[in-house]
Design a protein around this nucleic acid. Structure first.
Length: 522
RNA sequence: GCGGAAGUAGCUCAUUUGGUAGAGCGCGACCUUGCCAAGGUCGAGGUGGCCGGUUCGAGCCCGGUCUUCCGCUCCA
């Protein structure tokens, strides 16, 4: 027996988590044999299972648990026009400019917008000062008029610059855009100079060629989001599934974005997996459903063991081109609060765009009766989207699970363990089956338990090394439970079950093992 | 993409100013032990991230390159 004299020092060091993931088969860098490929990662034998458990848990909560949500699996390749319709071809390629002195890079529109904002602030300041002077009778009406004119010059200048910018961006006239920046002497906030590079465009979509001929019509994109696969299948699913609004279509799958800088381990990768659901609603009811899913999704995260105080909502101030409301569910990662899931009210933007570009009617006939007792009739549904990054969710679970525990033994010597306290229902391996000795018939009993259980949940059999060492290894990979078979088992058919999180042990009937574990992971 | 730091065994690191690499842990086999990282014996594993240069000789000096981490930037 031993006691916990101290159970502290649980520093959640991000670097330690990354290295633990590699050491215990959760995540490897892609193509490590060839020095790796930046911002691309592979899931190992443990990671793939955890990721699958997370995906399955989401899938079940969305489809099985909601009668009005169905799941699909759309292809990564889509018709090129899909991305014209969605707006990604235009808005996913941002013009950028670098300041040569500070090496700071700006999105051109952000740079110009902030300059216009400065002009507006300057204008407001002049007005404010002179309003005070006027009310104190320090200046007369004529003098005030002159100052007010000055203010409006600044104000109009700002508005004019923004207008010009919009025209030039729409025309992709980058030479003229640069000229606009230089003529207005827009400076870098770091270097305070106007020494700019040429404007360059960064397209965030990967493209490739389909078919043998390499002309422009054959260029296709790797999808930058999975959502469009749902929108273009809206009518197929609605009609073949006889779905009635409100209803949802769920999907998990890979998406690809050519991020300029991808960092923070698996937080921002060039290839990543989304789990998303598009919920189609009657126009006008989007606010109600947006709020419904906002709460529902946060509850789901809590249901898989994420503490409420580590989650928060963050409303978007600047909305994407398709949204009328948007927020992030953020998690407090080891490197700060970051987006885990996005909830977007996408209006009828996507369906309308696809109707326009495909020249096909995408509408729904609503037979429900309105207040006047008449059917709501034909309309383009509004959409509320919930979209989680599966890799981010994985990182969330790992960063919560990782614990470096240290304590002092009864004899005063230090002891400790690294343990992944992954919720039992998500843990890659549920049960380790460990014969205390690899003789005296104990392995035979253990293998019998193994055969009984492995059809129901993931098990792991191990007879090498001292029992303590095997427990530590199971802790490190996050195995939820261990059962140990000893000599007493042969006498009374009981085994020791050991709980990972608190290392507690209890004696239970051998015949109860499977039922107990199934109950605990349910 | 810019700036900073780093890269030696699976992991953590050592190798005094250049003289062809070691330890601990881990891993494999066997013996012993048996409820929280036990002991013993034997063993596998490194062209020092990669490429090039200087030198009689490079893990060490120089250049390039790749990757990772931190800061900036980016994240419809």
């Amino acid at each position: 027996m031993f006691i916990f004299a101290a159970m502290a020092n649980e520093a959640n060091n991000f670097a330690e988590i990354i290295s633990h993931c590699k050491e215990y088969g959760y995540i490897f860098q892609s193509s490590e044999l060839y020095d790796g490929l930046a911002a691309v990662y592979d899931y190992g034998q443990m990671g793939a299972q955890l990721k699958k458990n997370l995906r399955d848990s989401w899938w079940k909560s969305m489809t099985q648990m909601h009668e009005n949500i169905v799941g699909i699996d759309a292809a990564i390749f889509m018709h090129p026009t899909v991305w014209k319709a969605s707006g990604h071809v235009d808005s996913f390629s941002d013009p950028m400019i670098d300041n040569k002195d500070s090496n700071k890079r700006y999105r051109v529109d952000h740079l110009i917008e902030s300059y216009a904002e400065e002009l507006k602030v300057k204008s407001d300041e002049i007005l404010e000062i002179n309003n005070i002077k006027k009310s104190n009778k320090e200046i007369n009406d004529d003098e005030y008029g002159l100052e007010a004119n000055k203010a409006s010059v600044f104000y109009n200048k700002g508005a004019q610059i923004l207008e010009e910018m919009d025209t030039l961006i729409a025309a992709t006239d980058y030479a003229a855009l640069k000229k606009l920046i230089e003529e207005n002497k827009i400076k870098c906030s770091i270097s305070k100079t106007c020494n700019w590079t040429d404007i360059r465009e960064f397209n965030l979509m990967f493209n490739t060629k389909i078919g043998a001929l390499a002309d422009e019509a054959d260029t296709i994109y790797l999808r930058p989001e999975t959502a469009q696969g749902i929108f273009v299948n809206f009518l197929n699913v609605q009609k073949s599934g006889r779905m009635k609004i409100p209803f949802g279509i769920a999907q998990t799958g890979k998406a690809f974005r050519n991020e300029i800088v991808a960092r923070q381990f698996i937080f921002r990768m060039r290839e990543f997996e989304q789990m998303e659901m598009q919920f189609f609603v009657r126009p006008g009811s989007q606010k109600e459903w947006y709020n419904y899913w906002k709460d529902e999704r946060k509850k789901w995260h809590e249901s898989i063991g994420i503490p409420a105080e580590k989650l928060r909502f963050h409303d978007h101030i600047k909305l994407a081109h398709y949204a009328d409301m948007a927020l992030d569910i953020e998690f407090e990662f080891p490197f700060g609060w970051k987006e885990l899931e996005g909830i977007h009210s996408r209006t009828d933007y996507d369906l309308t765009q696809h109707a326009t570009f495909s020249k096909k009617k995408i509408q729904y006939f609503d037979n429900d009766l309105n207040e006047e007792g008449k059917p709501y009739g034909n309309y383009t549904p509004y959409v509320v989207e919930t979209s989680v990054g599966l890799d981010r969710l994985f990182l969330t679970v790992m960063s919560l699970a990782y614990h470096d525990e240290k304590w002092t033994r009864e004899d005063g010597t230090p002891d400790g363990r690294v343990v992944l306290k992954i919720p039992a229902k998500l843990a890659p391996i549920k049960l380790a089956i460990l014969p205390l000795l690899k003789k005296d018939g104990l392995p035979e009993i253990a293998k019998q338990i193994m055969n009984e259980c492995k059809g129901s949940f993931m098990c792991f059999y191990e007879e090498k090394d001292a029992i303590g060492k095997r427990y530590r290894r199971m802790d490190a990979i996050g195995t939820a439970f261990c059962v140990t078979i000893d000599h007493q088992t042969k006498e009374d058919n009981t085994v020791t079950i050991r709980y990972r999180d608190d290392m507690r042990q209890e004696r239970i009937a051998l015949s109860e093992v499977k039922n107990l574990v199934e109950k605990l992971i349910g």
